[in-house]
Design a protein around this nucleic acid. Structure first.
Lengths: 343, 343
DNA sequence: CTGTTAGCGCGTTCAG
DNA sequence: CTGAACGCGCTAACAG
């Protein structure tokens, strides 16, 4: 029971017109009479014809899809980036082909190849953790395929990027803590080869300098990822003779471990120790004391990256060599963990 | 500065062979000599040629992508479904074209149209909240495009479905509460036209009957979605003369509102009132008391749905009329909110 | 083992 | 306002 695919030819035959007439009618071409258009639409509906966009793409040499490569889709941050991207690309008539690198370099390279072969109009990318070599991206650039990076970017490639303004907001965290009377601020951060952690640390150091606060290498802990690691790191932090009175944690996961350790030591948050997290997970408000945290705007990051992509897609011919770097400013959500009752 | 696209013709010319030889070599066709294959690969690399898969698709009448339509990508549940889908489809060589309906019926219909036009090999779908009419899906079925539904499904369409075993686990929730000595169990649930809530409610009623527990229409609250609504609903629940001693909330969002209301009334969880949530959000463990909740396995749902899709894609010709309904059993994660110190 | 030929379904000149 | 004819880039008969 083979079902024959109905093509534009079938529509044309049934109506006794040429295929070009049908094609034009479907695209609302101005030189086709209203009457013919109506007839065509009617026949299309009757035959339940759907245009083959693969054929159209081949003919036009253009595909209406944008490829997106992200490390993992099942993270709040990334899925919200996609959400933001889609909110911009959908109204513009583009489909999204979404690929995961799974933090794997080989897969990222493979994804790039597939997207190039699929003739996507452009590629939006957030790098995998493993990616150091970017030869595969140079290939994209060579082929003149518009490329926009977001969040996990490589600035050195000279492509448009959209990122969190991690440095600025981290400075702001320090200012906030200083305003609350904390003077000895430690940081527990993630691996420094990752773009975002590097910047959060930079903002911290920057903030300390600006406010002339004490800087102490023992108060700078890097490479922490899990709550458990953060718990241990915090304990170690308080084994020094000179102990901090506040901790800036560059993720909420880290903050959770820090809080557990601090409470176990019998110290009170926020009066003895101030704690600030990063990413404003759902639980920040719910835990006690509620956690001051940095809220990011992944939807805006995605939407901005998508807007740049659409611009790139429009100009295309005019090879203006402008390069954009967009910084999305996160906000500091102040809760109880960093607000002293009496300063 | 037009960059000329290099095609298979360019490769063939440079090598002095025919295009078919190149085509076959690239597909590792058995009748091509090893030597020619090596030569072709070399030339392909030199010219930086990438095959145009749009043209190949048109020729073959087959596209190696699967369309996925979900209500919203930025939910833990859905993004994990996608993760599960991708983990199965990627190794099989398929791309995912992901569309969001945004809980909007019109957009869902539009998405379906786009995917059909794109000639996707198959469509995987989780319905929008708004969707009641399923004419657009009948169109997919008519065109013999493999269709698999997951989570938010419509059983009446006769297509393969993968869902949570909501009924079973909800019964289990009731059994657990009964074991803890709760006898007057209320339910606060979402809109009943949504598949999952309908089933959770069914499981609840089923469980009560099975255990011969008191049934009371005043203890059945439907149509609740936000924490705020749950807060109010809980208050109302306790204005009756006959008040419950446990509440089964069919989402953690609802549970949060219920807990707030109960605590405000001065009742103690779990001794006065037991509370169970659904979905085991990250915060369930963190809040105090920690929340007993149902953990779902979205990755498994996605992976199973994807496996069915691949099967469908393989058989295709053999029109076996088998229909599958796969139930993924969630687990009950028992925390403090439902475990009485003294029964 | 390789070349020749035809055509997938559509959009777009160029003629009327 | 409409039709005829060509070709986008590739694969798959059919022939050698």
């Amino acid at each position: 029971m083979e079902k024959k695919k109905i093509t534009i030819v079938d529509v044309a035959k049934k109506l006794g017109v040429s295929t070009s007439t049908v094609s034009r009618a479907l695209q609302d071409h101005p030189t086709i009479s209203q009457n013919t258009k109506k007839l065509v639409r009617k026949t299309v509906a009757e035959l339940n014809y759907s245009p083959n966009s693969v054929a159209a793409s081949l003919r036009k040499g253009k595909v209406n899809s944008i490829g997106v490569i992200i490390p993992k889709i099942n993270s709040t941050f990334m899925s919200n980036c996609i959400y933001g991207i889609e909110s911009v690309t959908y109204p513009a008539g583009y489909n999204l082909i979404i690929c995961q690198s799974n933090e794997n370099f080989e897969k990222e390279v493979h994804n790039i190849r597939t997207l190039i072969d699929s003739q996507v109009s452009g590629i939006m990318l957030s790098l995998s953790n493993e990616t150091i070599d970017t030869e595969h991206l140079k290939n994209v650039i060579n082929k003149d395929i518009p490329l926009v990076m977001f969040d996990r970017v490589d600035e050195s490639l000279g492509v448009d990027c959209v990122v969190n303004d991690d440095i600025e907001i981290s400075k702001e965290v320090i200012v906030h803590l200083a305003n609350q009377g904390y003077k000895k601020i430690a940081i527990i951060s993630g691996p420094s080869h990752i773009y975002v952690y590097k910047n959060r640390l930079a903002g911290y150091i920057n903030g300390l300098s600006q406010l002339n606060l004490e800087k102490n290498d023992e108060w700078i802990v890097k490479g922490i990822q899990t709550t458990q690691e953060a718990f241990e790191a915090t304990n170690k932090l308080f084994q020094n003779s000179n102990t901090p009175d506040a901790i800036f944690c560059t993720s909420d996961t880290i903050a959770l471990g820090a809080i557990q350790a601090v409470e176990k030591m019998g110290l009170k948050i926020p009066n003895d120790i101030g704690v600030v997290g990063y990413s404003n997970d759902i639980f920040s408000e719910i835990i006690k004391p509620s956690l001051t945290s940095v809220e990011q705007f992944p939807k805006d990051i995605g939407a901005n990256a998508a807007r740049i992509m659409l611009d790139l897609l429009k100009q295309e011919d005019t090879l203006q060599q402008v390069r954009k770097m967009v910084f999305i400013k996160p906000s500091l959500i102040i809760h109880k963990s960093s607000v002293r009752n009496s300063k």
